[in-house]
Write a protein that binds this DNA or RNA. Sequence first.
RNA 1: GCCGGGGUGGCGGAAUUGGUAGACGCACCGGAUUCAAAAUCCGGCGAGGCAACUCGUGAGGGUUCGAGUCCCUCCCCCGGCACCA
Length: 868
Amino acid sequence: MEELYNPQALEPEIQADWDAREVYRVTEDPAREKYYCLSMLPYPSGALHMGHVRNYMIGDVIARHQRMLGKNVLQPMGWDAFGLPAENAAIKNQVPPARWTYANIDHMRGQLKRLGYAYDWSREVTTCRPEYYRWEQLMFVRLFKKGLVYRQNATVNWDPVDQTVLANEQVVDGRGWRSGAVVERRDIPQWFLKITDYAQELLDELDKLDGWPDSVKTMQRNWIGRSEGAEFSLKICDAAGAPVAGDLSLRVYTTRPDTSFGMTYCVLAPEHPLVADITTEEQRAAVEDFVASAKTASEIDRLAEGQLDKRGVATGAYALNPFTGQAVPVYLADYVLMGYGTGAIMAVPGQDERDWEFAKAHGLPIVRTVQPPDDFDGGAYLGDGPAINSEWLNGLDVAAAKERALEWLVEQNIGQRQVNFRLRDWGVSRQRYWGCPIPMILCPDCGAVPVPEEELPVVLPEDVEFMGVQSPIKADPKWRQTTCPECGAAAERETDTFDTFMESSWYYARYCSPDAEGLVDERANYWLPVDQYVGGIEHAILHLMYFRFYHKLMRDAGLVSSDEPATRLLCQGMVVADTFYRENENGDRDYFNPDDLSMNFDDRGALAGATLKADGEPVTIGPVEKMSKSKNNGVDPVHMVEKYGADTVRLFSVSDSPPHQSLEWSEAGVEGSFRFLKRLWRQVVAHASAEGAAAELDPQALDDQQRALYRKLHETIGKVGDDLERRRTFNTAIAAINELVNATSRHVGESAVDHSLRRCVWRHVLLLTPMVPHATQALWAGLGEAGDVIDQPWPEMDEAALTRSSVEIVVQVNGKVRGRISAPSGASKEDVEQLARAESNVARFIGDGTVRKVIVVPDKLVNIVVAG
RNA sequence: GCCGGGGUGGCGGAAUUGGUAGACGCACCGGAUUCAAAAUCCGGCGAGGCAACUCGUGAGGGUUCGAGUCCCUCCCCCGGCACCA
């Protein structure tokens, strides 16, 4: 065993050994309890950053701990390899997206291995490979046949110069990022998955996900946005309430049918199909004008410009309020969205803030139908109260009036109870090249026809010229042209590709049977559901919703048997760091990397200033922010591994804050972790060389001091296990181990029992193995122990070791600590009280006062309440 | 605006069920070692006070023998959603 801790020498050696023996490879074994620990797969952007390192450490600690607890642990890794950055890189570097992606994967795999993560690389998944995406295509074809897929027009950003669709992030200030042309909104046909069919189940089962953070569940609930109300029809009429030609009617959705008597107008969304039919001649020009302006200005643009005023126009038409028999005007306004409910509303300004504002802006009447409290002086009243101005509803509270109004609508046969969701169907078409081809054929006669299953996969050509304007498969007639599988006529392939969320919606299942002839095979049911999923909170809604949805699709296709894909979810915090910048002449900030700066500290050690090494001039210290390229505050993990070794980087990345909180990167902190490992190493080496052959410890032979250390050991075992498994607070687990190491180094006894005791403690470097697997392996071997640390059983806490003969009890007088006493463990209330009163300082504070009450918390605390 | 999570020393954070506030680490200070430095080891480290003590967990109030923890009012920060009828 080396005298000095030398991670650069020992880590690669241990990693090569793991690799050669494939120690993290697992197979299904029904006789053993399984544990599936999964971290969200990375996009192969080029190099690992600190965020990756910390994220994967969280999963690695859990996986390694579970393995030592005896479980059959699956921890896989793969690559979310399709996506826009590869296209951007292709343009910048003149490399085909595939080549750039595969090179990045090779590089990043090497980096992951250097950090020592316990992955089963035999199950690696790369989503841009046909062996992977062919099954995604098959699933899509089957979903199409099942009626869960449809094609419909949807709006995209269209660059009229480049003649291409742009992703939202490619639109800068309303212009195309390359061409600079003003981007248009254009409707083109796109593919949708019917996630809304599963809205209710996706909502209901959130209640069963006890192991998911509340924040994520709340976000999903809001996103699904279930609301209960009524849908009903109103007849279109003239201003006098007389019927118009064509017998038109308007259907509206409301959550407040109780307020129907207060309807003073109706509103249609600008895109509503009824608009053309009901608009009167006098209003036609104004309506067309409004519809055109509503199309150009997107909601988001207007929000950004603060234009939340209620724009709208009268159609000239009227609708008959079935409750009152009165005709109310029908307006058009862009505060009503075509995509929700029926795209039309009854407006009740007395009870709805948006309607109130519109009514005020357009001079429309307002009728209150719920009596507000006397002190209410606002506009629309949204609270509870008795119904007023509502004939047969008058006097009922909101809930009762809702029910009564609903019953009435059903009796009249004009409406019914209706549940609506905000959740939209999932648009999966992307007009990009670097994605999975959508396996559909567009036939002029038969329409959209799926590619026959036996012809899958539809392979995306990888060796292409790609300039970033036109997708190579859209540009290539040979790729496009095919024949219709149904009628045999000439037809064209769909040239859109899937949203990359499609690949990341089922990769976790593919890992279970990576070579299956199908999406998955029966092995999936051994591993699924995932026991612990780890990933960023930014995926709280989209990915984690699609992931749940796709699991249910696979379940309903008979592929998996569970209802939910993951039982426990941990969303890790960001890695953040100080920023440093100077303002340039344009008023923009030029950010500097900490590597290029000299830091100055004040008397108290706080960062007081920094200067650029290059010119010696000061820079401004900015706020602590997420490590990023744009803020130039990133630290290269590889550089850190070269300097300190993987174990130090691993240890620090989980030491300084709990996993779900952000971690402030501090090189001084990294050095602290490094110092700890060096200190541990020195002590174990000293023990192994001087006391190597110590006998097995006999707990009965311990004196008080020795027993105290032995107790500390077992307290630590208990705490670390609990922190790693239940609480997932790795920082406190590490702090506890730190305390144990400190206590052991202070233990100076030299007897044979002391030697045995120390040996017993040092064998428990096992507690650090999940965080620091290389160093603990070397120490384990150095202690003369055989085998791999990663396969040692997790230490068990000895309850008997925790017992104490006497305990220190805090004595309070009127809630303030006035003394400490030593009492036999488990002493009676009376005995403890007597000891407490006898303590001199306590006695002083009781003085002549009358003791009113004595509270005793056994073995912990006494509080003596004194009056006077 | 609505929803969720926070606010504790110079800093990151700990305090798990209402029971000793500040574990552990960083920074800093003092000492040992050294020709010297680095490294290492020992000690100190919330504020005020010689001390006894007093004060102290964003602000104010409350419940309690006892509140960082529970309740009410308010301020600030972070994240999500944002005309969803």
